[in-house]
Design a protein around this nucleic acid. Structure first.
Length: 466
RNA sequence: GGAGCCAUCGCCAAGUUGGUAAGGCCGUAGAUUGCAAAUCUGCUAUUCACCAGUUCGAGUCUGGUUGGCUCCUCCA
């Protein structure tokens, strides 16, 4: 299993801290608004990673956090009058549902900042005790970047004189321009505040992840976890700062490998809330099936930027349809075991830094060759069972193809329409038997007007929703 | 201004250690079909933004040019 390490900038053999185990921590969302396609892509990328590692025999522990303490959440509290709890639990719930619609397996650990305050305080106190962090007159706590001689190793950003931590409010009390806040003091009564030894306030963004990782993973004397993941935009400053805090607090590196996913773009520009070009997942899921969206968003290698277009999404659907048509051909039945060569090829492809393109082409080839064999010998039971097993394996590894194939083609068709379709088809069959082709073609047109396409097969007339 | 990523057929998109360009969509010819659809088969980049270099040999390495994107502010 090879993965690309975005800090070392090279593909590396995955050699975990503990044999046959893989600990992964992915930066999750700040829960103050709906998730967009970018969040989906990140989740999807690491879902694929987790599935692939499992398929390669690793025992995976995946953690994905929810940042539920943040300035933006506080702003929303002020704007809506709802409590922080109400807001965060609402968006956590929605996020979870949407990710589940995309076939994303839930993380084994889903830590929240609000549930990790003790760990956060302990880590900050640890850094203060070592004089790596310092408290200023307001009660804010800063991380002294000059105390960490490895600072910059993650993002490879050369030290500069500019204040690169502007997320932190400017203060003359900072020791170095690059120092960043670990803890922010409450400003008003309404702020979300927690008591600590150093001041009443709330944690900074970066420290949350570091503390949660220490809380949930033990690692070894060199690293806390195997893989740390997130969007490419988190490399700096977020991951740089996380790494620095953890390094100074624990005496070892935070993560053995770092992986970053590329962006979803709209018209060639990064999708982001500040640009106002977000395509929210809830809207996308209202228009498209979650499985199709999954296939589409995963069809480009996770490290590349992904330019979203609806036409391309339709093409993905066509490709997925072919898999389900084959599944229809071999259903119903009992799965045997997957074809050895196919399984190995697919594992090899995914084991090469999640080469999804090769994987999808292997599946297309499997579909073509199986259809071909089935054309020659439609009653090949052994092949049918093996094909079913192959598709089950695809579903396990890549997360699509798991639906019942007939219902897949009937998404959005209600019982009444279904009945109507079946009536029309049986009428058409009779017309065809009587060689009344004018009538049968008219019925086909009628079905087409309903958005239904039909195909005559040896097993009778099958239909699909377009 | 500083740092980095990317540029492959009409469209999407693979291509680690340099060795002579996967796959999908579209198009097209055929098999099959009452006709379609579905399915299968054949064809479809002497060429990888451009220029120069290293090499027996480069999409793959080096330097430069052009174009696009990202980070340096919240961001997946």
């Amino acid at each position: 299993m090879y993965i690309y390490d975005s800090v070392k900038k090279t593909k590396l053999l995955f050699e975990p801290i503990h044999a046959n185990k893989a600990s992964i921590y992915v930066c999750g969302p700040t829960v103050y608004d709906d998730a967009h396609l970018g969040h989906a892509r990140s989740s999807l990328a690491f879902d694929l990673l987790s599935r692939t590692l499992k398929a390669h025999g690793f025992q995976v522990t995946l953690a994905k956090n929810f940042t539920d303490i943040d300035d933006k959440i506080i702003k929303k509290v002020e704007a809506t009058g709802q409590s922080m709890q109400e807001i965060t639990s609402f968006y956590i719930e929605r996020y979870t549902q949407e990710m589940s619609a995309l076939g994303i397996q839930r993380a084994d650990i889903e830590p929240k900042a609000t549930e990790s305050l003790e760990a956060i305080e302990a880590m900050i106190q640890n850094l203060i005790d070592k004089d790596i962090a310092y408290v200023i007159s307001t009660g804010d706590v800063y991380f002294d970047t000059s105390k960490d001689n490895a600072y910059g190793n993650i993002s490879h950003r050369v030290a500069d004189d500019e204040d690169s931590q502007s997320r932190v409010e400017h203060t003359s009390e900072k020791r170095n321009p690059k120092d960043f806040a670990l803890w922010k003091t409450c400003k008003g009564e309404d702020d979300i505040c927690f008591d600590t030894a150093f001041s009443r306030g709330r944690p900074g963004w970066h420290i949350e992840c570091s503390a949660m990782i220490e809380k949930h993973f033990s690692g070894d004397e060199h690293y806390s976890i195997d893989i740390h993941g997130g969007g490419a935009d988190l490399l700096f400053p977020h991951h740089e700062n996380e790494a620095a805090q953890s390094r100074c607090a624990t005496g070892h590196e935070l993560s053995k490998y770092w992986m970053h996913n590329g962006f979803v773009q709209i018209d060639g520009e990064k999708m982001s809330k500040s640009l106002g070009n977000s395509f929210f997942l809830k809207d996308a899921l209202a228009l498209y099936d979650g499985e199709v969206l999954r296939y589409y968003l995963n069809s480009v290698h996770y490290r590349n930027d992904f330019n979203f277009s609806e036409e391309e999404l339709q093409l993905s659907k066509k490709r997925l349809d072919k898999l389900y048509r084959l599944k229809k051909r071999v259903s119903p039945g009992k799965a045997s075991i997957p074809n050895k060569n196919f399984k190995k090829s697919l594992l090899d492809a995914m084991g090469d830094d999640l080469n999804i393109s090769i994987s999808l082409s292997l599946i297309d080839e499997l579909i073509a060759s199986t259809n071909d064999a089935l054309d020659a010998n439609p009653k090949d039971k052994g092949l049918k069972k093996e094909t079913l097993a192959n598709i089950t394996f695809i579903d396990e590894l890549l997360g699509f193809g798991g639906k019942e194939p007939f219902s897949y083609f009937q998404i959005g068709v209600d019982e009444a329409l279904k009945k109507q379709i079946e009536t029309l088809i049986s009428e058409r069959t009779k017309a065809k038997q009587n060689k009344n082709f004018e009538r049968s073609d008219a019925i086909r047109d009628e079905l087409g007007a309903l958005g239904i396409s039909i195909m005559d097969s040896a097993e009778g007339t099958l239909w699909e929703k377009a």
